[in-house]
């Protein structure tokens, strides 16, 4: 018992140390700002995303009903979390630490900012500063765009990044790009990060066994690794690169878990036969009871006749 107590104590101390250890965000990430202003509709979308991704540990903001984990996840409405700068919140959600998972591959940066907007809605003192338009770098003033094209041989996707300024279009070269496939529970990175070549192009090989929808279509999403420089530009599109997957209905055929009309034959037969046989014999017993009665009645009437005569 003493041993258990002391080891528990040690664990508490270690956990306490971990909490005490500041979660420092690199200086260049700290000042990062959302590229879009937090509107009511954004906050609403943020609630959805928060419920799906964060609530299971952090609970409902303001209620303090987060999970009893070590270290405690904390309530996002409290000062402890609200004193973070926007960039810090964004970084911590993206990277994760310890029990807190990293969301950078699960959620698009737009989605993470949307969650930040929801968290901020619990801070009445919060005033948002929006990221100024990106004008720096080699493509200042230009609109950056991504496009995706499937190779005719269907074994790779070509990504092209271009900067459009007025009528002139120039390729964005040497930029880190990523390609994701949208799955039910988040984004699945396709191959490694690539760098655009001098024509602004990068090629992502596509595995031949990616499951798609009924038509074999897959939703892919491309974006820049360095969003600070290029902004949250992304390109989502449907590509015909996956396997055609027909969803199999589990309630189509006869099965134990199905409704009674689709119960397996053997169980219907066993049950019905069992009931029929047993109750058939019960009926037989009741018929025998009837026979007993008939015999008694007959003897009674014979006796009565005898008495009369």
């Amino acid at each position: 018992m003493k041993k258990i107590l002391s080891s528990l104590l040690l664990f508490q101390i270690l956990a306490g140390l971990l909490i005490a250890q500041e979660w420092t965000v690199p200086a260049d990430k700290k000042g990062r700002l959302s590229p879009f202003p937090f509107s009511d509709s954004i906050r609403k979308a943020g609630l959805q995303l928060y419920s799906l991704n964060c609530m299971s540990c952090h609970g409902t903001p303001g209620k303090g009903n987060f999970q009893a984990l070590v270290p405690p996840p904390g309530d996002p409405a409290t000062d402890k979390i609200q004193h973070n700068a926007d960039g810090e919140l964004f970084y911590k959600v993206s990277e994760g630490r310890g029990q807190m998972p990293s969301f950078k591959n699960t959620l698009a940066s737009k989605d993470i900012w949307t969650i930040v907007s929801y968290i901020r809605s619990f801070n009445p003192a919060y005033v948002q500063s929006v990221m100024p338009e990106i004008t720096s770098g080699a493509y200042s003033g230009a609109v950056i765009a991504l496009s995706l094209l499937l190779n005719p041989s269907r074994d790779s996707v070509m990504l092209k990044a271009s900067a459009i300024r007025g009528n002139s279009v120039v390729p964005v070269t040497g930029a880190g790009v990523k390609l994701f496939v949208r799955r039910t529970f988040g984004l699945l990175p396709l191959d490694e990060e690539k760098t655009t070549n001098d024509q602004g192009m990068a090629f992502f090989p596509v595995p031949s066994d990616l499951p798609g929808d009924t038509a074999g279509k897959i939703q892919v999403s491309a974006r820049f690794t360095d969003e600070d420089q290029f902004g949250p530009v992304s390109k989502d599109t449907l590509l015909q690169v996956g396997l055609k997957i027909e969803p199999v209905s589990l309630v189509k055929d006869r099965a134990m878990w199905n409704v009674v009309r689709k119960a397996p034959w053997w169980i219907i037969l066993t049950y019905s036969l069992g009931v029929l046989v047993v109750w058939g014999f019960i009926l037989l017993v009741l018929l025998k009871l009837r026979d007993i009665y008939i015999i008694g009645e007959h003897i009674d009437s014979v006796g009565a006749k005898k008495n009369e005569s």
Binding site: I292, Y293, I295, G296, E297, I299
Partner: peptide, 19 residues
């Protein structure tokens, strides 16, 4: 059930009980 202790009644009853 009009039981009159007739041997036939006993026979039927025994069958029924056995079932």
């Amino acid at each position: 059930f009009k039981w009159v202790h007739h041997p036939e009644q006993y026979k039927i009853l025994n069958q029924a009980v056995k079932i």
